[in-house]
Computed example of a mutant assay.
Amino acid sequence: MTAVDESRSTGTGAASEAVAALIMELQAVGLRIETELETSRKGGAGPSDSGMLWIEGVPVTVPPSSESPYSLRAEDDGQGIYRDGTKIASVSGTARPRFYDLTTADGIPYHQIALLHLDSLASTVVQACNYWGNSDQCGFCGIGLSLAAGTTIAKKTPEMLAEVATAARDLDGAVDATLTTGSSVAPDRGALYVARCGHAVKQAAGLPVEVQFEPPRDLDTINQVHDLGIDALGIHIESFDPAVLARVAPGKHRTGIDTYFRTWEHAVKLFGEGRVSTYVILGMGEDPDLTVAMCKRAIDIGVYPFVVPLRPVAGSLMENIPAPARDYTEPIYRKVAGFLAERGLGADTAVAGCARCQACSSLNLIQHAGTAPPCSSTTTGTPAPLLQIGKRPGA
């Protein structure tokens, strides 16, 4: 009997708490891989440098680590997570997606066009960003790494993505699609191209689609994206702490936090509450009280703040920054989960995208466990240590 099995005997809330606790630990300290792990990813703009697992039926991404006290081991009927020789939880669903073995008519492997993140198809449709390789490069991002490694192509077309999405749905059970793009200098910031790609996926495969882009200069761009039938938007600020944003994402800092809120408010009116989300990364030196307060402000206008721990990406400017400890992330999760519960927002309202998948966070597990009471205070403890990222290219 695993630790999670024992928790189940006391009720589903206790089981959810046990799984949430384990996932928070794994995302902080990593997982030793002592068996084959088919689904993993390096580089890119999504859950990079991570193993993708189903732990007790919950989708999870975790960083591999040779120093973790937790290990992934093969078993007769699957895999398990162990600590000190004791099985902690069961693991399933790590087989290589079947559509990865297909190619387009002109010879492009499907896995260079899109990847399966557990049950969500994902692609960076333009594998370039005007912030990459200069003083504006975001410290946490690895968008240029996979292109340099030859594991993807520079630009995916709507036709390519429609073809791959259909195969991913039929062969591997993909349930939605998440399409993102590097930032563009164009007034729409790349939103219209990624939305056209999303429209093609919906037309061909019928999957719910989230598209992700930075705030466009003209809010009418959001209207045009909505008119293409897109289901959800990800407009990612990364940090609500302006000092941290200026240090780790200078381009986003220049856009301005107020601009993000104006864009979100307009988007929520079109797409509905819970269908507009933003990444909030923990562990970059942010003020936790400010972070929680701004998450509440976002929730109050119907935006889902997808709170995740920093995932250090090898080759990025923050590759040597450790992931934040569970002691730091858990109080923030609990407070934000309480606000989400009050507002009636959750993974189910997100429909598609990162907030629907939840594999990179424990936020939804905490909320589902029913142990995140409404919070009248935003006090979470001491701020994360101030972090220094690597020297920027060209500096």
Results as ranks from 00 to 15, higher is better:
residue 207 L to G: 08
residue 354 C to P: 00
residue 272 G to W: 05
residue 11 G to P: 03
residue 121 L to V: 11
residue 111 H to Q: 12
residue 150 G to Y: 13
residue 45 A to S: 13
residue 208 P to L: 01
residue 116 L to V: 12
residue 93 G to F: 08
residue 375 C to K: 10
residue 247 R to V: 00
residue 226 H to F: 09
residue 54 W to T: 07
residue 90 S to F: 05
residue 91 V to W: 06
residue 50 S to L: 07
residue 67 E to T: 15
residue 304 Y to Q: 07
residue 27 Q to Y: 11
residue 8 R to I: 08
residue 366 I to G: 04
residue 42 K to P: 00
residue 13 G to Y: 06
residue 349 T to P: 10
residue 229 G to E: 00
residue 306 F to C: 11
residue 10 T to K: 14
residue 126 V to E: 13
residue 273 E to A: 15
residue 23 I to C: 15
residue 372 A to N: 10
residue 119 D to T: 15
residue 79 Q to H: 14
residue 77 D to L: 02
residue 233 L to V: 00
residue 153 I to E: 11
residue 259 T to W: 04
residue 219 L to F: 10
residue 179 L to W: 06
residue 210 E to A: 11
residue 52 M to F: 15
residue 116 L to A: 13
residue 234 G to R: 10
residue 198 G to A: 00
residue 231 D to R: 06
residue 239 S to Q: 08
residue 94 T to H: 11
residue 246 A to Y: 08
residue 257 I to A: 12
residue 321 I to C: 11
residue 391 K to G: 14
residue 318 M to G: 15
residue 15 A to H: 02
residue 12 T to M: 10
residue 158 P to L: 12
residue 81 I to H: 08
residue 160 M to P: 04
residue 267 A to D: 13
residue 105 A to M: 02
residue 346 G to N: 01
residue 272 G to Y: 06
residue 290 L to C: 09
residue 353 G to I: 01
residue 221 T to N: 09
residue 212 Q to M: 12
residue 181 T to S: 09
residue 195 A to K: 09
residue 83 R to Y: 07
residue 381 G to W: 04
residue 98 R to E: 15
residue 262 R to Y: 04
residue 203 Q to M: 05
residue 261 F to T: 02
residue 14 A to N: 12
residue 249 A to I: 05
residue 365 L to H: 12
residue 35 T to M: 13
residue 158 P to M: 12
residue 181 T to M: 04
residue 143 I to W: 02
residue 281 I to T: 13
residue 378 T to K: 09
residue 9 S to V: 11
residue 338 G to K: 03
residue 170 D to C: 00
residue 228 L to F: 08
residue 170 D to V: 00
residue 364 N to I: 04
residue 334 R to L: 02
residue 234 G to C: 13
residue 257 I to K: 14
residue 6 E to P: 00
residue 197 C to M: 09
residue 136 D to A: 02
residue 89 A to T: 08
residue 351 V to T: 15
residue 305 P to L: 03
residue 177 A to T: 05
residue 29 V to M: 01
residue 65 S to P: 05
residue 336 V to D: 07
residue 54 W to I: 09
residue 138 C to G: 08
residue 261 F to E: 08
residue 72 L to C: 11
residue 210 E to P: 03
residue 290 L to S: 07
residue 250 P to K: 01
residue 171 L to P: 10
residue 279 Y to D: 13
residue 104 T to K: 02
residue 110 Y to N: 12
residue 381 G to H: 01
residue 364 N to A: 15
residue 260 Y to P: 14
residue 323 A to D: 05
residue 302 G to R: 04
residue 346 G to I: 04
residue 386 L to Y: 14
residue 42 K to T: 12
residue 152 T to R: 12
residue 184 S to A: 13
residue 383 P to M: 14
